[in-house]
Write a protein that binds this DNA or RNA. Structure first.
Length: 703
RNA sequence: GGGCGGAUAGCUCAAUUGGGAGAGCGCUGCCCUUACAAGGCAGAGGUCACAGGUUCGAUCCCUGUUCCGCCUACCA
């Protein structure tokens, strides 16, 4: 019998690396098609390919790993499908920043060279997050790793786009969309973050055209947009203003006269002055109102959110505003209005400011031609699937959140004016619609004529319907990153081909994710899964907590309160981090990660290490399983406790109570096995030949 | 504006059916007893946010209040 020499103190790093290598060598994470067990599958929420492991990833992947390893131990054919996301805007921004440091830009490089550059960047840094997941111990089936821009997944994207188009669920149209003036692209509604601020409410005098001494008082938080006003609305039943409806006011600072209309939807009599300016090209409500009253749309800013006076005959003073970005234009307009006695008052006003979720720039509503998914027909079945329990959302409290959003869902703007991503599979004929075609105008807007009809196809068509061959150009825009993510549960398994993997592992068993991407990702996967696979993409959605710092603050680089999981793993070991995250992951509560807690579980790992060390010192690698009749009282006791613990842990994990499972393990190992059992058997270990001793050995090594 | 969650020991959090309030960390005291001082044993510490109500009895159920957090919402 050899007596292995174990260090007195557990040093995680070497042990972790050694075991991880061994697991990989033995192919333990690889799911095969020949495995007889009942399939169990999870697709990873693909991290951004340029990303680095943060503590949210650590939690998310720890929980998935626990589930997968547990099911694997139960004999299930378990697949954890890994991969990364191309993360369109985020990645493009990263590479663009690099270019800027080099004194160049994507425009200077041109599309092709730029994309080459992004791919290079992806090859260089794309492996980082994967390596970090391995460091975390993630038991993914790495042989199956996918990337959202792999050829197979891109094919799935084109297939879906074309089929949605065929079914009338994908359309192009001029709508008001959220526009990021820094990223220079459209954003979907949920890509806009709202921040509460105290802004200003300006009340401006709009004189009646035929009665200049009488003014309508109009309230606005964005006075500069008055340059794009095409009407003023009052409530049709408002006694104060009824007599003005149908007459005209002369729009200050411009030479235009605009009508006064009655609109009971737009106007809240109680708010402000009861009179609202209508700027159809720069406000969502006004856009709708503009449609109701057939008002013209005047764009008073360009894609950089800089003021344009086109459509307005500006006087000398106003022309100084031309070209100024909104934050600079606003005070100038305020100044001019004040100087001319047109500003009635300014009040403080609480409001929500929309910001780009990628770069935090203030988002502007902009009139633009974009591609949209007609989402209602897809949302309805996805609502049903959750209502009737085909998809279970855990904890259930988020179910209403999901249903509420889905029932009130707006069409999904899927086109992005960036280069990194899946280029939209639509072609236009320059011969039919004139040149220059797809070049960008000085304001950056694509020059696809609104009436140009697109030829949507999986690959470039030979000719346009009129027979032109050489004049076809592809839509320059790319798809929202979340478009390809929505297909992830089946595209990674080989769809649109009917692969054996798809048959075996779809629908997947569980999705583990954070609340922040419930709408971005989860909802869209359910919609797309139902549409293209006919079944839900997963049975359970487990929504875990958000990890905060010890003070409960959201971790952010700017606050400097970020806990780096890599640092924690170096300092305390991977198991300490994982056990901490699991044990604090109780439902309905955010995880406040405090370093002392991690230290406590580092000690736990050390405790286990030393228990093993103790056993090995006495019995080495001997493995003896005595028949039940020969088992001592302590043996029978600890075995019964062991079985009870296994039962508890299994029940807890089946209910996604990672916290309880962790505490059951902690309790058993430390306070029952170590504190009592090991102490109880110490005397018998003094007499190595006694039957009790043999029993002890067998039991210990077995467990 | 609407919706949801939280408030329990100094700190971080448990407590699935209303009936004696728990863990880890920290703290106090004693132990370097050869598995582990990243340990062992013993112990202190809580009007379970506040105010009402239901009940024989409430941390738990109901109502209201305060504070914190989140989601959602473009009342200009």
């Amino acid at each position: 019998m050899s007596t292995p020499q174990l260090e007195k103190i557990y040093t995680p790093r070497q042990v972790e690396d050694r075991w991880y290598r061994r697991w990989i060598e033995l192919g333990l994470f690889h799911a095969t098609l020949t495995h007889q067990g009942e399939p169990f599958s999870i697709v990873i929420p693909p991290p951004n390919v340029t990303g680095s492991l943060h503590v949210g990833h650590a939690l998310n992947n720890t929980l998935q790993d626990i589930l997968v390893r547990w099911r694997r131990m139960q004999g299930r054919n378990s697949l954890w499908m890994p991969g990364t996301d191309h993360a369109g805007i985020a990645t493009q921004n990263v590479v663009e920043r690099r270019l800027q440091e080099e004194g160049t830009s994507r425009e200077a490089l041109g599309r092709e060279a730029f994309l080459k550059r992004v791919w290079t960047w992806k090859e260089q840094s794309g492996g980082t997050i994967i390596a970090q997941l391995k460091r975390l111990g993630a038991s993914c089936d790495w042989e199956r790793e996918r990337f959202t821009m792999d050829e197979g997944l891109s094919e799935a994207v084109r297939e879906v786009f074309v089929r949605l188009h065929q079914d009338g669920l994908m359309y192009r149209g001029e709508r008001l969309i959220n526009w990021c003036p820094r990223c220079l692209t459209a954003l979907s509604d949920i890509e806009v973050e709202h921040e509460d601020i105290t802004g200003k409410l300006y009340t401006i005098r709009y004189p009646l055209a035929d009665e200049p001494n009488t003014c309508l008082l109009v309230a606005t938080t964005r006075p500069e947009t008055m340059l794009g006003d095409t009407a003023v609305a009052v409530h049709p039943e408002d006694e104060r203003y009824r007599r003005f409806i149908g007459r005209r006011v002369s729009l200050p600072l411009t030479n235009r006269e605009i009508p006064v209309v009655g609109d009971s939807i737009l106007v809240d009599r109680e708010f402000g002055t009861g009179a609202v300016k209508i700027t159809p090209a720069h406000d969502f409500n006004d856009f709708e109102a503009g449609m109701r009253h057939h008002l013209p749309r005047i764009k008073m800013m360009d894609v950089h959110a800089a003021v344009r006076l086109a459509g307005t005959q500006a006087d000398g003073e106003l022309s100084t505003v031309e070209g100024l970005p909104v934050p600079k234009a606003r005070p100038k307009i305020e100044h001019i209005l004040t100087a001319r006695g047109l500003l009635e008052k300014i009040e403080n006003h609480k409001m929500a400011l929309g910001k780009c979720y990628r770069c935090k720039t203030v988002v502007e509503p902009l009139l633009s031609d974009q591609w949209f998914v007609n989402i209602k027909p897809l949302a309805e079945p996805a609502v049903q699937a959750v209502e009737d329990g085909r998809v279970r959302i855990i904890p259930e409290t988020w179910k209403n959140n999901y249903l509420g959003w889905m029932r009130d869902i707006k069409d999904w703007c899927v086109s992005r004016q960036i280069w990194w991503g899946h280029q939209i599979p639509a072609w236009y004929c320059e011969a039919c619609y004139g040149k220059p075609f797809l070049r960008r105008a000085s304001d950056g807007a694509p020059l696809i004529p609104s009436d140009a009809s697109a030829i949507v196809a999986k690959s470039a068509p030979e000719t346009c319907p009129n027979g032109h061959r050489e004049s076809l150009v592809q839509d320059p825009d790319v798809l929202d990153t979340w478009f390809s993510s929505a297909l992830w549960p089946f595209s990674t398994l080989g769809w649109p081909r009917q692969t054996p993997e798809l048959k075996m592992f779809y629908p997947t068993s569980t999705l583990v994710t954070g609340l922040d991407i419930l709408f971005f990702w989860v909802a869209r996967m359910i919609m797309m899964g139902l549409k293209f696979m006919g079944t839900v993409p997963f049975r359970d959605v487990y929504i875990h907590a958000l990890v905060r710092d010890a003070e409960g603050q959201k971790m952010s680089k700017s606050k400097g309160n970020v806990i780096d999981p890599l640092h924690v793993m170096d300092e305390y070991g991977t198991d300490a981090l994982r056990f901490t995250l699991a044990s604090m992951s109780s439902p309905g509560r955010d995880v406040k990660l405090a370093e002392e807690r991690i230290e406590g579980y580092r000690n736990f790992a050390n405790k286990i290490w030393n228990a093993a060390r103790f056993i090995l010192m006495h019995v080495g690698g001997t493995r003896i399983t005595p028949p039940p009749a020969q088992r001592s009282f302590p043996d029978r006791w600890i075995l019964s406790r062991l079985n009870a613990t296994i039962r508890t842990v299994s029940q807890d994990l089946a209910q996604y109570r990672f916290d309880r499972a962790a505490s059951a393990l902690y309790q058993f190992i430390w306070h029952e096995y170590c504190d009592w059992y090991l102490e109880l058997i110490k005397p018998t270990l003094q007499a190595p030949d006694s039957p009790e001793s043999a029993t002890v050995r067998g039991t210990l090594v077995e467990t």
